[in-house]
Amino acid sequence: MDHTLSALVQIDLDGAYVRLLVTGCVTEASQPALYPLIRRARALSPPVTVTVDLTVDLTAAEHVEVVGVDLLRWAVDHDKSMGGAGPVKILLPDELPDHPPRRPG
């Protein structure tokens, strides 16, 4: 499987939110490429006192590894360089593509 990812940044015209739409594969190996995009998206917020919401939407990703998401969350939560930047919300598919629901029996 080709573990590539693609990201599209959407910015609200009022500057209230920035959304990073991710497709492709979010894995342990590919998540380091996603993190710099999150840092850039966080920096797009205007330098005002209003906190801008940043959402990383993985609901359209074809392949999501739990360990990749965990590493991404850790990196975002421990980034001291973003100081007063607002929180980052990570949206996941209802069922992670690499972990299909177990069937009873």
Rank of each mutant, 00 (worst) to 15 (best):
R73H: 11
P36F: 10
R40G: 09
R102H: 14
I90P: 00
P100S: 07
L34W: 02
L54K: 01
G86C: 01
L37C: 14
H63M: 03
G24R: 04
Y35A: 06
V48Q: 12
L92G: 05
V9Y: 06
G15H: 07
L54C: 04
E28D: 11
E28C: 08
D14W: 07
V67E: 13
L21K: 11
I38H: 05
Q31W: 03
P97A: 00
T55K: 05
L34V: 03
V76H: 07
E28N: 12
P32Y: 09
D14V: 07
E28I: 13
E28W: 12
G105L: 00
S81C: 05
I11V: 15
K80R: 15
L8G: 10
I38R: 05
L58S: 04
D94C: 07
V26Q: 03
E65K: 00
H3R: 14
A43Y: 09
E62S: 13
P101D: 02
L92N: 07
G83F: 13
D2A: 10
I11L: 12
P104C: 07
L37F: 13
A29C: 06
A75K: 01
R19F: 09
V22F: 06
L20N: 14
S45L: 08
I90Y: 00
A60K: 07
T23I: 04
K89I: 12
V50M: 08
L96A: 06
S81E: 13
S45P: 09
A41H: 04
M82R: 15
R103H: 06
L72F: 05
S81K: 09
S6F: 15
R102M: 10
D70M: 12
C25R: 01
H99K: 12
D57V: 12
R19V: 13
P32W: 10
S81Y: 08
D94Y: 10
D12I: 08
P100A: 05
V88D: 04
D53E: 15
L72S: 02
A61W: 01
T59S: 13
G24S: 10
V56R: 05
V64W: 01
D98S: 01
L72Y: 05
A33E: 14
G83T: 15
D94H: 11
L44R: 15
G105V: 01
R42V: 02
L58R: 02
L54Q: 04
